[in-house]
Write a protein that binds this DNA or RNA. Structure first.
Length: 803
RNA sequence: GCGGAUAUGGCGGAAUUGGCAGACGCGCUAGAUUCAGGUUCUAGUGAGGGUUCCUUCAUGCAGGUUCAAGUCCUGUUAUCCGCACCA
């Protein structure tokens, strides 16, 4: 027998699989379909991270198992290749991002192929390919035509020293990442997408899909639906300030009101505000802070009182001071609040700082002068007029009913979710296919002109005054209006990286189609995605954006399902050996090339699955990797003990059936670590016995194939039934043979284990108790004591309570 | 501050429904084998106490429910991830 030579084996089988196209997914096959999806990678210059293959191997196992179960499986791969790092590298090294992208993709492709994933490479997609982004632009045009895209002034990060717009990522601790210069907020007109119009449906339809509960929770919390009321406060100027509150019950406890510094009423009332200079100064100060900074400084509240202005509490007619403060955001609710310091901790902080009264209106907590009492489940209303005596739950609707009757307010549902800022002032993204005409406004370019290809320009530096680098491409910008034929200019902003990744899974279904993003037949056949796995870091944005686009495409009749993904799971991060995030600066990065070179792809895959609980973060261990290599070697060396016998021998039969059951079930539950452990145990059983039949060896090879496909194919060629193991049938088990005839149960006295007993499986409760009472140890330990109670759990234990 | 998660031997982790805590692997110890080894095999391995056997303690911390708690409840601490102070 030759020794285990993974190098030649892995290359050999990768070539054979490719040649025979056994991972080819057939559109419209008669077999049942199964669509497994992993998040397509951003092809970075750093190459593959050992974290990538964790997800890829997991779903590769599922994909391979499904093929063995007779499904027509689609397991595709592609590149999310637009983005900032490539663009910044291009600026620095004066190379076109296209060239860098191609290099990075080539490297990623080599690395992924060396790991033996069963991707259908014929369906590879690339978001930067004009044949791909043609359809990204097409979807945007449909959104535009349906009124879901609009322009609005939004703040951008502006580096005062580089004089360029920056992404949030490039702002580190409030300063520019490149030069350390001051970053301020500048307003710029940006394209927005009305995702908020889908907020309710994005919550409701979660009921129809099988996502991990924590993922659903995060989606819901991000969308953040709240039911409350809008309440009108008359101001001393005669103006009306509308506030949003979820705690209408506390209206009698309002002791002041706050507007966000950007609130339009401030400007309107400027002649009545006697300290307007101070107000302006505060507004300027607030404009400097990014939202990130406002969050950071949350504890120390700041604000300015609007002198000579007061608001009237509609519940009791009290005059309340009006403040502006940046802890109130213009983007949420109405941009103004009524402050109830007794029952909201932020209001409480502010009230303490500005020495404002704190009036208790919900009893049940400690002293509200010392701490805000925010519990809505306990406590009764006090000091609250007609609400006094009610519970909070009763008082909220009672107050809103009263406000509605008096015309002072109304019920209102609010969402935290905000519309999606869709413009980027960058080069390496999809051009937005619109032109601006002085006569006609913003006009869509004809669909026949798609794709609108990125123009070639010399430098990719961001434009001055916060404009896109495309602003320099004058030839490209100047065009004619498709509507009136007059002169017009193209939009120079590009789309965010999220655009291409919001629909890529549809393109996989029919990647070479030139007439549609995918054919109706392909969409009907493959939709929806059966299982999608990805990182927790994408559970809010990417997942939400792609669900939103999918729902829109459903509404306009392009896709056949309301939801894109039937099932969504997530994996944990792989950390460095020192338990910290892998990074160049920490020097703890593990290079997949080196691992595969030294131990092979199969050992790498096996270790990635064995490393720990799939959904949790876990540190890399070179020793652990070695252990998995040793396991594969032991499997290989079992060849030495194959005998002429057939079938399963009686002393291994039960182990084999149990292992088939456990491995299959564990794969489905994503408990890959225990599935591998079960196979290790079976190998231990085989070795211990010292002789196995060919059938016993073969069943091990089948079970192990999805994890370590190359080695098992090689051994199958020698010992199997011919053909590719990768498409051989998944084994079945006999439930009856997974059950032991005799089982060991535990005998306890007062909950402490005192003896163990072997009894026939299936013995009933009375029989079990009877057998327990026969135990010599139990007899001697209970002698002279009163037996109060005997608890028996058949098949598990007997607990005798004595005194 | 808000939202989500996590905490079990020297290490990664297991325990599917409240029912033997520590499966499996790493590491370590001893022995065998190889001319030396980082190879392979065998046995042992949570801690403490008496030593074939037994016993006490032990799942971040403090309480509670239960015949029985890693698992359920209340409180608390630490760490990680995300964030848009969400009224």
């Amino acid at each position: 027998m030759e020794s285990y030579n993974f190098k030649s084996i892995e290359k050999k089988w990768q070539d054979k699989w490719e040649e025979a196209k056994i991972f080819h997914a057939e559109n419209g096959s008669d077999k049942p379909k199964y669509y497994t999806l992993i998040e397509f990678p951003y092809p970075s210059g750093a190459g593959l991270h050992v974290g990538h293959p964790r997800s890829y191997t997991a779903l590769d196992i599922i994909a391979r198992k499904r093929r063995m179960e007779g499904y027509n499986v689609l397991y595709p791969i592609g590149w999310d290749a637009f983005g900032l790092p490539t663009e910044n590298f291009a600026i620095k090294n004066k190379v076109h991002p296209k060239i860098i992208t191609a290099q990075n993709i080539a490297n990623f492709t080599r690395q992924l192929k060396m790991l033996g994933f069963s991707f259908d490479w014929d369906r590879e997609v690339n978001t930067t390919d004009p044949n791909y982004y043609k359809w990204t632009q097409w979807i945007f045009l449909q959104l535009f035509k349906h009124g879901l895209a609009y322009k609005q002034e939004m703040p951008i990060n502006w580096c005062t020293s580089c004089k360029v717009g920056l992404s949030n990522e490039e702002v580190v601790n409030g300063v520019c990442e490149r030069c350390g210069g001051e970053v301020v907020q500048r307003r710029k007109s940006q394209w927005m997408l009305k995702i908020t119009e889908y907020a309710q449906r994005l919550i409701d339809d979660l009921d129809e899909v099988d996502y991990l509960e924590k993922i659903k929770t995060q989606q819901k919390n991000w969308i953040g639906r709240s039911e409350g009321a809008e309440v009108k406060f008359k101001l001393s100027t005669g103006d009306e300030m509308v506030v949003y509150t979820t705690r209408a019950d506390t209206l009698f406890g309002a002791t002041y009101t706050v507007m966000s510094p950007e609130h339009p009423l401030i400007e309107k009332m400027k002649d009545s505000i006697t300290n307007y200079d101070e107000v302006e100064a505060y507004k300027a100060e607030a404009a400097k802070k990014s939202e990130f900074e406002r969050t950071e400084l949350a504890k120390d509240k700041t604000g300015v009182k609007l002198e000579s202005i007061y608001a009237i509490n509609p519940a009791n007619g009290e005059k309340l001071p009006v403040f502006i403060s940046d802890y109130v955001l213009v983007t949420y609710g109405t941009g103004a609040i009524m402050a109830v310091p007794a029952h909201d901790s932020r209001d409480w902080d502010f009230a303490k700082k500005f020495d404002l009264p704190i009036i208790e209106v919900v009893a049940g907590g400690e002293d509200v002068q010392k701490e805000a009492y925010t519990d809505v489940y306990k406590g009764k209303m006090v000091n609250s007029g007609f609400l006094t005596g009610m519970t909070v739950k009763e008082a909220i609707p009672a107050m809103i009913d009263w406000l509605e009757k008096e015309g002072l307010g109304k019920r209102k549902v609010n969402f935290k979710l905000r519309d999606w800022v869709f413009s980027r002032q960058r080069y390496w993204g999809e051009p937005i296919p619109l032109v601006h005409c002085d006569k006609c406004g913003w006009v869509a370019i004809p669909e026949s002109e798609l794709p609108l290809v990125l123009p070639e320009i010399d430098t990719f530096e961001p434009g001055e005054n916060g404009e896109s680098p495309l602003a320099k491409a004058t030839d490209w910008i100047n065009t004619t209006c498709p509507h009136c034929g007059g002169p017009a200019q193209r939009e120079t902003d590009t789309m965010p990286q999220w655009a291409g990744s919001s629909w890529y899974f549809l393109r996989y279904m029919d990647p070479h189609n030139n007439d549609a993003l995918a054919s109706k037949e392909a969409l009907e056949y493959w939709s929806p995605i059966d299982w999608y796995n990805g990182g927790m870091e994408h559970t809010t944005l990417h997942l939400l954006y792609s669900r939103f686009w999918h729902k829109f495409l459903y509404d306009i009749g392009v896709v056949p399902t309301k939801e894109p993904y039937m099932k969504r799971t997530s994996h944990g991060m792989i950390l460095g050996e020192n338990n910290e995030k892998m990074s160049k600066s920490r020097g703890n990065v593990v290079n997949p090339d080196e691992v595969v070179n030294e131990f092979g792809a199969d050992a790498f895959r096996t270790y990635e699955m064995f490393i720990g609980a799939f959904d949790q973060s876990t540190p890399w261990s070179q020793q652990g990797l070695k252990g998995c290599y040793k396991f594969l070697e032991r499997v290989w060396n079992l060849q030495n003990i194959i005998t002429d016998g057939e079938g399963y021998t009686s002393d291994l039969e039960s182990s084999i059936h149990k292992t088939i059951k456990k491995v299959g079930e564990d794969f489905e539950r994503m408990k890959f670590n225990t599935a591998v452990a079960a196979m290790m145990s079976l190998v231990n059983d085989y070795s211990k016995k010292g002789a196995i039949t060919k059938d016993e060896y073969k069943v091990l090879l089948i079970l192990l194939n999805p994890v370590a496909p190359h080695m098992t194919e090689e051994l199958w060629e020698k010992y199997g039934d011919g053909g590719f193991l990768s498409i051989h049938a998944w084994p079945e088990y006999d439930e009856a043979k997974t059950v032991d005839e005799e089982i060991e149960i535990v005998l306890q006295i007062n909950g402490k284990i005192r003896d163990k007993l072997t009894i026939p499986a299936g013995l009933d409760k009375d029989g079990t108790v009877e057998a327990a009472m026969e135990s010599e140890r139990i007899k001697s330990l209970t002698e002279g004591k009163t037996i109060i109670k005997v608890i028996a759990v058949p098949g598990k234990l007997v607990n005798i309570v004595v005194k």
